[in-house]
Design a protein around this nucleic acid. Structure first.
Length: 437
DNA sequence: TCTGGGGTCCTAGGACCC
DNA sequence: TCTGGGGTCCTAGGACCC
C-alpha cells in the first residue's frame, strides 16, 4: 500500500502561516515576473481564477473582490517543504519526494489502522508547520494519487463524494462496489497521466470517468495511445507499473531560463542575462556532482506580442571535454548567443540548458591528456559556491555578468514578495510587544 | 503596459550500416 | 513488369507532470 500526501494550495498556505490575515480571503501566488497565477486559495478558485491566468487579467478582481496577489517566494516555499516532508516521512518506512508539495510513502508492512495513522500525521503537520494537507492511500501510485484527489474534492466540494473520504481517503480499504462508485464519480481528466489532449480524445470515444478508463483493455490503451496510458489503466486495476523511487535519480539535463522584466534589444544585455543563467545552471550541476558535455542556449521574442516581428532560435555546442566550470560553460553559452543573435528584435526570454550530463567522477580519456577541469579550478568553483551560499547569491560572480542586477532591464519584476520568514534573519516575524493592546 | 519554469518519457522518422 | 531487408541510433516534437 502507498500513500500520497500533499499540501493544499501549497504556496498560498505557506504565505498564510506567517500572514494569518490572509486566511479566508482570495489569494493567488504569481509566477516569476509576476506573470501569472500558479497557486490559488479555495476562495480564489471560487472566483473562477484558472491555473496560469495572467496577472494583468486579475487586476479588476484585486479592486472589486479583495483578491490579494503575491510574488512567488520560492526560498520560503522550499524551506517549508523540507519541514513538511520530514514530518510526512513518519507515515511509513520510505519516502519518495515527488514535488515541492507532494510525497509518496511506502506503507507496506505497516501494521494497524492506516487511516488513523494518516490522521495523526496530518494533524501533526498542521500543528507543527501550519500547512493543511490531504492524504490518499491506494495499492498503486495512480490509485494513491486518485485517492488524494478524492480526499481534496470531498473536502472542498461537499456532496461530490461521501463525506468520510474528506482529507483522508483509503481506496485499499473500500469494498469493490464502493471503489467502483468512487471511480464513477471521478472525471477521467482527474486521473494522473491523463492531460487535456488525451482527456478530450478519451471522452470522444465515450470514456468519461475513471471507472470507464479502469475498464478499458490495456491493449486498446496501448494501441490507441501509448504504453504510458496502458500503464495507467493497469495501475487503476491495482497492478503496480510505476516504480517507487526512494532516492532521486541524477538529473539528465539542467536548465535555467527566464522571461525578462522588460524587452531587451542589445546583444550585450542578452549576454549578461545568459551569463547569469549559465552560472546558475553550473551551480546546480556541481550540486549534483555532474559534468556537462553539451551546452544549449536560446533567445526568443514574446509570442504574445503578435504585432512585433517574431524570432526564436536555439543552438548547442558540444564541449571538447565534459566540465562543471562556470567560466567554460558561460563562454560556450555566450558564443551561442552571439551566433544566433539578430539585430532588430525585442527579446523577451532566454535560457541555458546543460545536456549530456555524466558523473563528475567519470574518468576522461582525451587523446592529448588535456585536463580541462584541473584541481585548482574545482577548488575555485567550490569556494565560489560556498561564498554564495553563505553570503547570498551574487556575492562572487563572473565579470561578464555585468553591473548589479537591479540596474538591468532583464531583471525580474517581483513587486509583491513576502519576507523570508524562515530563510532570512531580517524576515523573522516580530511579536507585538505593545503593552497597551 | 502586462502571459512561468523545470523536468520526464515516448514515438515517429530519418540517417546510416551491413 | 519494375529498385531488399533488417537493424540501430539519434533527434525533434508531443504529451504529461507540478
Amino acid at each position: 500500500m502507498l500513500a500520497l500526501i500533499d499540501g493544499n494550495n501549497f504556496y498560498v498556505s505557506c504565505e498564510r502561516v506567517f500572514q494569518p490575515w490572509l486566511q479566508g480571503r482570495p489569494v493567488v501566488v504569481l509566477s516569476n515576473n509576476d506573470g501569472c497565477a500558479i497557486a490559488r486559495s479555495d476562495e480564489a478558485k471560487a472566483l473562477g481564477i484558472k491555473m496560469g491566468a495572467p496577472y494583468f487579467q486579475l487586476r479588476d478582481l484585486e479592486r472589486d473582490a479583495g483578491l490579494i496577489a503575491l510574488s512567488a517566494n520560492f526560498a520560503l516555499y522550499g524551506d517549508m517543504s523540507d519541514r513538511m516532508m520530514t514530518l510526512a516521512a513518519g507515515l511509513g518506512h520510505t519516502q519518495e519526494v515527488y514535488s515541492i508539495d507532494e510525497s509518496f510513502i511506502d506503507l507496506s508492512a505497516i501494521p494497524g489502522d492506516l487511516v488513523r495513522r494518516a490522521r495523526t500525521i496530518r494533524k501533526r503537520i498542521h500543528q507543527w508547520i501550519g500547512i493543511p494537507t490531504c492524504i490518499g492511500i491506494g495499492p498503486t501510485k495512480t490509485l494513491a494519487k486518485l485517492a488524494n484527489a478524492i480526499a481534496k474534492n470531498a473536502e472542498r466540494k461537499p456532496g461530490s463524494y461521501p463525506a468520510q473520504h474528506a482529507q483522508i481517503c483509503h481506496l485499499g480499504a473500500c469494498t469493490p462496489e464502493d471503489l467502483a462508485a468512487l471511480l464513477a464519480a471521478t472525471e477521467v481528466g482527474d486521473v494522473w497521466g491523463v492531460g487535456r489532449k488525451i482527456g478530450a480524445q478519451l471522452r470522444e470515444i465515450g470514456v468519461h470517468t475513471a471507472l470507464d478508463l479502469q475498464r478499458m483493455s490495456p491493449a486498446a490503451a496501448k494501441a490507441g495511445w501509448s504504453v504510458v496510458l496502458e500503464k495507467t489503466v493497469r495501475e487503476l486495476n491495482g497492478v503496480p507499473c510505476i516504480e517507487f523511487e526512494d532516492e532521486p535519480p541524477a538529473k539528465q539535463q539542467i536548465a535555467c531560463t527566464r522571461s525578462f522584466g522588460h524587452p531587451v534589444t542589445e546583444l550585450i544585455e542578452l549576454q549578461e542575462a545568459v551569463t547569469e543563467f549559465a552560472c546558475r545552471a553550473a551551480e546546480k550541476l556541481r550540486k549534483q556532482n555532474s559534468h556537462t558535455g553539451q551546452i544549449m542556449a536560446f533567445i526568443r521574442t514574446s509570442p504574445f506580442r503578435q504585432q512585433d516581428p517574431q524570432y526564436s532560435r536555439s543552438a548547442s555546442i558540444p564541449l571538447p571535454s565534459p566540465t562543471s566550470d562556470s567560466a567554460h560553460i558561460t563562454q560556450a553559452a555566450n558564443a551561442i548567443v552571439k551566433r544566433i543573435y539578430k539585430d532588430g528584435y525585442k527579446y523577451a526570454k532566454a535560457g541555458v540548458m546543460l545536456m549530456d550530463l555524466q558523473p563528475a567522477t567519470r574518468e576522461q580519456l582525451t587523446l592529448d591528456f588535456d585536463d580541462t577541469m584541473p584541481e585548482n579550478r574545482v577548488r575555485l568553483m567550490l569556494a565560489m559556491d560556498q561564498l554564495n551560499q553563505r553570503y547570498g547569491r551574487g556575492t562572487l560572480k563572473l565579470a561578464s555578468a555585468g553591473a548589479p542586477k537591479a540596474m538591468k532591464l532583464w531583471a525580474m519584476r517581483q513587486e509583491r514578495m513576502s519576507s523570508g520568514f524562515t530563510t532570512d534573519w531580517r524576515g523573522l516575524a516580530c511579536v507585538n510587544n505593545d503593552r497597551s493592546t
